[in-house]
């Protein structure tokens, strides 16, 4: 059962109530067994939190860190040099995104092929110069793929029921927002492995969704 002061017990425990409220809580505690019990349990939680001990990661992270130090900005930074480096070097996410852009182009081709000609036979040019793609070209390719898929959905929507098309479009929009947010975050922290990994996983979700969409079209044809 929840009482008037139940939600203030943590503040009481942390000595963050003013004198009047503290007195009121104490008066309530004298009469309420439930709240006394709750307070005792909250104290146990706080005590348990303080007992947490640190432990080393399962694997030594230093080798990976020192590899990244080789590409990280030096501690004494020169903004001019930093900007120049950014202009001529591709970051890990950019290269990853370039690779995924090719995958998306492939997936887009799958969609169009399936929607118009039946089961797909799509060959991806394995010799495509991924590393040579510029960032702007990668973004343009990505946008072009989205545009083609959107067009395909509009043109061949009659092969799928309206609800399915709507769901697919909604999910593509959701994933696109997620990709945009991940990229925005990476602009603030381009070297983050965590964000790079997150962006990679998000892009993979988009590829997976496109592949599922292609399967649905095949089944509906």
């Amino acid at each position: 059962m929840k009482h008037q002061w139940t939600d203030r017990l943590s503040e009481y425990l942390d000595d963050e109530l003013d004198a009047a409220d503290r007195s009121a809580v104490e008066a309530h505690l004298r009469e309420c067994e439930q709240c006394r019990s709750d307070l005792g349990q909250l104290e146990a939680v706080v005590a348990r939190a303080r007992e947490l001990t640190d432990r080393l990661p399962a694997v030594d992270l230093w080798p990976a860190i020192v590899r990244r130090l080789g590409t990280a900005v030096e501690p004494v930074t020169d903004l001019t040099q930093r900007r120049a480096r950014r202009r001529i070097a591709f970051s890990v996410p950019q290269l990853a995104a370039a690779g995924v852009a090719l995958m998306l182009l492939s997936a887009g081709a799958v969609w169009l092929t399936v929607a118009r000609n039946g089961p797909p036979v799509v060959a991806v040019d394995s010799a495509a110069p991924v590393a040579a793609l510029t960032v702007s070209a990668e973004l343009a390719a990505y946008d072009a793929t989205i545009a083609e898929l959107g067009a395909a959905l509009r043109l061949d929507g009659d092969r799928l029921d309206t609800a399915t098309v709507r769901v697919l479009e909604e999910n593509l929009a959701i994933i696109d927002r997620a990709i945009a947010e991940a990229r925005t975050a990476l602009e603030q922290d381009p070297a983050s492995r965590y964000l790079n990994g997150h962006l990679g996983r998000t892009l993979r979700r988009k590829v997976d969704l496109l592949q599922r969409a292609a399967t649905l079209v095949t089944a509906a044809s």
Partner: peptide, 16 residues
């Protein structure tokens, strides 16, 4: 900073 961006995206992805 990392979790803010990731959590927001993840929530939408899960919903999707």
């Amino acid at each position: 900073a990392a979790r803010t961006a990731a959590a927001r995206s993840q929530q939408r992805l899960v919903q999707g």
